[in-house]
Amino acid sequence: MIHKTGSELFEIKGKKLYAEWRFVYENRPVLVFLHDSLGCVELWRRFPFDLAQAVSCNVLIYDRLGYGKSEPMPTHHRPVKYLEYEADILNHVLNFFKIDQAILFGHSDGGSLALITASIYAKKIRAVIVEAAHIFVEDITLSGIYLIQEIYKNSNLAERLQKYHGNKAEMVFKSWTETWIRNDFRDWNIKHLLPSVSCPLLFIQGEKDEYGTLTQVDETVRNVNGKAEKYIIPNVGHTPHKEIPELVLKKSTTFINSLFDF
C-alpha cells in the first residue's frame, strides 16, 4: 500500500529506486520531477513541493537508476539510446504509483527524458515542463562537458558529489561525461519523436546556458504538436530553478493553472 506521504526504495524491473512523494489532492495530476545527469531527489531542495502546493497538485520525485539513494548503475558505459530505456523505466514508475495524469518537470537530460516519455507514453502525460532540455548534441554541450571534466580533476567536485551519491559519485560523473563526448553519441537526436508530443509544453531556458543554445528551445517548440511556449530568462545559466527559483516557480504555476480547471 502506498501512503499519501512517504519516501522509500521500491523495485522496478529488478532494480531498487528511491522516491519521495506527497499524494494529498484527490483527482489532481501528479507532478513528476526528473533530475539532470548529476542530480538526485535531494538536490531539488524544496522546489518540487513548493510548486505542487502552489498548483494544488500531488508530487513524486525519484532518483533515477544509479543516482542518489537508488541502486548503482551496472556500468558507466551507456548505450546511445539510454534515455529511451529510462523512459521505459519511468513508465513502470508511473504504473507502480498508479499515476495516469502526470505533469513531467525535467531538467537537462531529465528534460530530454520528459520529452521522450511524452512522445512514447502520451496517454499518461497531461503536460510537460522542461528546463534546459537537449534534443540533439551541440558543440557548446561538449565544450561544457570538457570544462567540467577539468574542474572535476582540479577541485573538490568529486567530494561534493559523494555527499549526494555516496560511492556511486564517480560512476555518475563518468556515465554523463564519457557518454556524451563519445563519437557514436555525437549523432544522438530525438527531434523525430517530437511530433508525437501532443500535450501542452513549457520550455524554460537560461539565456546564458553553458550546455545548450536557444536552438534547442526553438526546434522543440516548433516540432511538437501540442500547445507550446518558451520562457527565456536573461543572465541565467543551466539551472534556472536554482538560480532564480522564484521566477521559475511563478512561471510554472501560471502555466499549469492556465491549462487545468482547478
Rank of each mutant, 00 (worst) to 15 (best):
K13M: 09
K98D: 13
A228K: 03
G111F: 00
I116A: 05
M1T: 11
L249G: 01
L65F: 10
I135L: 04
P240E: 15
S155F: 08
D261W: 09
R186C: 04
D63K: 04
D139R: 05
S108G: 10
I233M: 10
W188S: 07
Y25K: 12
F255W: 06
L115E: 11
H134L: 10
L247D: 14
K123F: 01
S112T: 15
S112I: 06
H92V: 09
I148H: 08
R222Y: 07
T254S: 12
T220C: 03
K124L: 09
E159P: 01
D209S: 06
E86F: 10
I233Q: 15
N156P: 00
D88C: 02
N235S: 11
L113M: 07
Y62C: 03
V130S: 06
G68E: 01
V172S: 00
S112E: 15
M73Q: 14
P245S: 09
W188H: 07
D187C: 05
S198L: 10
D184Q: 10
H165L: 09
W21T: 00
A228S: 13
V128M: 13
V80I: 13
V55P: 06
P74C: 07
L94E: 01
S108N: 09
T213P: 09
Q216E: 15
I151Q: 08
Y164L: 05
N223G: 03
L147D: 14
P72C: 07
F23P: 00
Y231F: 14
E26Y: 06
R28D: 15
K227Q: 13
Y25E: 11
V221C: 12
I61A: 02
V197D: 02
V217A: 14
V41K: 02
N183D: 14
V55R: 03
R126P: 01
H35K: 03
V130E: 05
A87Y: 03
L142Y: 02
I145G: 08
K98W: 00
L83M: 12
V80P: 12
M73F: 15
S119M: 00
V41H: 02
H77E: 15
R64K: 14
A52I: 11
